[in-house]
């Protein structure tokens, strides 16, 4: 893979950019923390969840993280709190909770 040093990209003039604004890397959306838009946070109850993966297919942001065929966690860097996972879960194992409340608790 090409190395792309962009630390000082804010200072770049026209000639320094890649042709046609192409980014010489793939999957760059992963670098963006878009979870900050979230108003509600999904919380999974490990006891109720049987790893059926229906939430994995429903998630529009690929934020259901799977490891070894099991639902490992929800990627809160990219989850936007849409609630689809909670709506489709056949075992009501995902609950949408207040994001601000959750953050307050995390800070404590």
């Amino acid at each position: 893979m090409k190395k792309w040093q962009i630390d000082d990209i804010d200072t770049w003039g026209p000639s320094r950019h890649e042709l046609g604004a192409t980014i010489p890397r793939s999957g760059t959306a992963d670098d963006y923390n878009t979870g900050g838009w979230r108003v509600e946070r999904p919380v999974r109850d490990r006891e109720k969840c049987n790893d059926c993966m229906i939430c994995f297919f429903a998630c529009p942001d690929s934020s259901v993280v799977v490891e070894d065929g099991k639902m490992a966690e929800i990627d809160l860097e990219h989850c936007k709190g849409c609630g689809l996972c909670a709506a489709v879960c056949p075992r009501d194992a995902i609950e949408m909770t207040d994001e601000l409340e959750a953050r307050r608790k995390e800070e404590e």
Binding site: M1, K2, I9, W12, G13, P14, S15, H17, G20, A21, T22, I23, P24, R25, S26, G27, T28
Partner: peptide
Amino acid sequence: NPVTVGPFDGLHGWYFEHKVSQNR
């Protein structure tokens, strides 16, 4: 050498610089 073609470039991005390079 995977690449991303046609990315979003917002208000604080480099659209202006790319237009100048087109003219060059």
